[in-house]
Lab assay of single mutants.
Amino acid sequence: TFELKGKVGKVVKIAEDHYLVEVEGDKWIAYSDEKLSLGDRVMVVDVDGLKLKVKRIP
């Protein structure tokens, strides 16, 4: 999972307290300090167990 840091993915689902992002064909639970929208491109900035911390990228 640490090899996911720096990888780019996209938001595929928005849940009440987390996001579902697809990175390299796999779906992961993710969270972010900013509000994300469906389809946003994101970069993995940290890995916390099986959850990814992501940030939006242009």
Rank of each mutant, 00 (worst) to 15 (best):
V11S: 02
S37G: 09
I14N: 08
G6F: 02
V12D: 11
G6Y: 01
D33N: 14
K55S: 13
I14M: 13
K27Q: 09
K5M: 15
V12S: 07
K13T: 09
V21D: 00
L52P: 02
A15I: 11
I57L: 10
K5F: 15
L4H: 01
K53S: 09
V8W: 04
G49V: 14
F2E: 15
G25Y: 14
E22P: 01
K35L: 07
K55Q: 14
D26Y: 15
A15G: 13
G9P: 00
V11K: 00
K7A: 07
V54E: 00
K7W: 02
V45K: 04
E22W: 08
A15R: 07
D46E: 06
K27N: 05
K53F: 15
G49L: 09
D48W: 15
M43N: 04
D40M: 13
V47L: 06
R41M: 15
V12F: 13
K13L: 09
I14P: 12
W28L: 03
K35D: 06
L50S: 10
S37A: 09
V54W: 02
E24S: 03
D17S: 10
D33P: 10
K53Q: 08
K10R: 13
R56L: 05
K55M: 15
T1G: 15
R41E: 14
E34Y: 11
P58S: 05
H18V: 12
G49H: 09
S32Q: 14
V47D: 03
M43K: 04
G39P: 06
Y19C: 08
E3V: 02
W28P: 01
V47R: 03
L20S: 07
G9V: 03
E16I: 10
V44I: 05
K5A: 09
A15N: 08
L4R: 01
K51L: 14
E16N: 11
K53E: 05
K27R: 10
G39Y: 13
V8D: 13
D33I: 14
R41T: 12
Y31W: 10
S37Q: 13
Y31L: 06
K53M: 14
D46K: 02
K7Y: 03
L20V: 09
F2S: 15
D46C: 03
I29G: 06
L50Q: 04
A15F: 09
V23C: 04
K10Y: 13
K10A: 14
K13Q: 09
V44K: 00
L38T: 12
G25F: 11
V21M: 08
F2M: 15
L38W: 07
A15S: 08
E3M: 02
V45E: 14
K27E: 05
S37T: 11
D17A: 07
E34M: 08
V8F: 05
I14E: 08
D40N: 07
V42N: 01
V47E: 04
A30C: 05
I14G: 07
A15D: 13
L52I: 04
G6C: 03
D33F: 13
K5T: 13
V8N: 06
D48N: 14
K35F: 09
E24H: 02
G6W: 02
K7V: 02
G39V: 13
A30E: 00
M43P: 01
Y31A: 09
E34D: 07
K13F: 13
E3P: 15
K27G: 07
M43C: 11
V21H: 00
M43F: 04
V21Y: 01
A15P: 10
E3W: 11
P58I: 05
D17T: 08
L52M: 03
G9L: 02
V44C: 04
G49A: 13
D26L: 14
K35Q: 12
D40I: 10
S37K: 13
V42D: 00
D26S: 14
A30W: 00
A15Q: 10
T1H: 15
L4P: 15
V54K: 00
K13G: 06
V45G: 05
S37P: 09
D40H: 05
L20D: 08
H18E: 08
L52Q: 01
V44W: 01
Y19A: 10
V21I: 12
E24R: 02
V8T: 08
M43H: 04
H18T: 13
E3F: 04
R41W: 15
Y19E: 05
I57Y: 07
Y31V: 05
D48H: 11
V12M: 13
E24P: 02
H18Y: 14
L50Y: 12
G49Y: 14
S37C: 09
G6H: 01
K7F: 03
T1L: 14
L50C: 07
D46G: 03
S37H: 06
K53T: 10
Y19K: 04
D48E: 12
I29H: 12
V23I: 13
L38A: 09
S37N: 11
Y19G: 10
D33W: 14
E22I: 05
V21Q: 00
R56A: 05
E3G: 01
G25R: 08
V42R: 00
G39A: 11
E16A: 10
W28Q: 02
D46P: 01
Y19R: 03
V44Y: 02
L4M: 14
E22V: 06
K10D: 13
G6Q: 01
K51Q: 07
E16R: 12
V42P: 02
D48V: 13
W28C: 02
I57D: 14
S37Y: 14
D17M: 11
L52S: 01
P58R: 04
D48L: 13
K35C: 06
V54L: 04
K7R: 04
E22T: 11
Y19T: 13
I29W: 09
V42S: 03
L36E: 02
I14R: 08
T1D: 15
K27Y: 07
I29K: 14
S32L: 07
I29D: 06
V45C: 07
S32F: 03
D46N: 03
V47K: 03
L20H: 10
L20W: 14
D46F: 03
G6N: 02
H18I: 14
K5G: 03
R56P: 05
I14Y: 06
L36Y: 13
G49T: 09
V12W: 14
W28M: 03
S32T: 06
A30L: 01
G25V: 13
L36W: 02
K5V: 15
G49C: 10
K7L: 03
E34C: 10
S32H: 10
I29Q: 10
L36P: 05
Y31R: 10
Y19L: 10
K10L: 13
I57E: 14
V8A: 04
V54P: 00
D46Y: 03
I14F: 09
L52V: 04
K55F: 10
M43S: 04
E3Q: 03
D40Y: 13
L38K: 07
I29F: 08
K35E: 07
V23W: 00
L50D: 04
P58D: 11
V12G: 08
R56G: 06
D33K: 10
V8I: 10
V21P: 00
K10H: 11
L36F: 07
P58T: 13
R56Y: 05
P58K: 05
V23Q: 01
K53W: 14
A30H: 00
D48Y: 14
V54A: 02
V44L: 02
I57R: 04
E24Q: 03
K10F: 12
D46T: 03
R41I: 12
E34S: 08
D33E: 11
V54M: 03
G25M: 09
G39R: 13
W28N: 02
I29N: 08
G39F: 12
L52K: 01
A30I: 01
K51A: 09
K10N: 13
L50W: 15
I14A: 12
V45F: 11
G49N: 12
V42K: 00
V12N: 11
Y31N: 05
K55D: 12
Y31H: 04
W28E: 02
V12H: 12
K35M: 08
P58Q: 07
V21K: 00
L4V: 12
G25L: 09
V12R: 13
L52C: 03
K13V: 09
Y19D: 06
H18R: 09
A30G: 07
D33Y: 13
E24T: 03
S32K: 15
V12T: 12
V8M: 07
E34R: 10
V54D: 00
E3H: 03
K13R: 09
P58V: 05
K55T: 05
H18K: 12
D33A: 11
K13N: 12
